[in-house]
Nucleic acid binder design. Structure first.
Lengths: 124, 124
DNA sequence: CAGGATCCGTCTCGATACTG
DNA sequence: CAGTATCGAGACGGATCCTG
């Protein structure tokens, strides 16, 4: 059995790897879209406004590789591809929700802090 | 009073802004270092292994701007600068802890999923 | 419909050199 | 000691064109 360092200062640290994934631009949005159930590629593309084909595909591939999402190709014409959160993926929703709620509840303070900081900068 | 969209698909969304900050390479590590109390610049630099001066300074400035960290310059020779988490900053430790524990508990599944995925890729 | 391939600008990050 | 300034490589992300 392999053990993983709890030391966050290592590149191999679980937190580092998760944050690298979660931190990129579209991952969380895609997970959020899939939280409601399976979705087709095109539906996700429309739901996640502003995402390019390239980025959406790349994000989905990463999620699939990490076992957070399953990709199902239906043999139809035209092709239909469904994406769905795995149990692991659904399990991640809760921790992300914690972060989301924190952000929602404290963003006001952060914005205020930024304004104050920038005002101080302005005066030198 | 300003309200902020709960819609994560907006760039102005609190979650987006928080994730942009949390997602970058050094932020979480620096917060982790400061979780134990105030630290001097040099101490942080040594604790967060691999960080460059530039990145550390930039990270600390961002945290300061967001009101998560205070910067205190002591008039001494040589200069001494202490960084300390604000209440808001300390408040963020808990949500990050949730994510950290999730990562620790599930990284094994993710690594296994990656291995399986890559093996499948290999065979074409 | 669901991508794959390619080009290209932007931004991030690290290394290095210098400073009050 | 605690930064600032500058440069260059590479990653990231968007737009466009093409395909089974």
């Amino acid at each position: 059995m392999t053990t993983y360092a709890a030391d966050p200062y290592s590149a191999a640290c679980p937190s580092r790897q998760l944050l690298d994934r979660v931190g990129d631009k579209w991952t969380v949005l895609v997970i959020g879209t899939l939280a409601g159930g399976p979705r087709r590629y095109g539906d996700i593309a429309r739901a996640v406004e502003g995402v390019s084909q390239k980025m959406l595909t790349q994000t989905l591939r990463h999620l699939e590789r990490d076992g957070l999402v399953t990709r199902t190709v239906h043999a139809q014409v035209p092709v239909r591809v469904d994406y769905e959160l795995t149990e692991l993926g659904r399990d991640l929703i809760a921790p992300l929700g914690v972060l989301h709620r924190w952000a929602r509840d404290h963003i006001g303070e952060i914005v205020a802090a930024r304004a104050a900081y920038d005002a101080r900068e302005q005066r030198g």
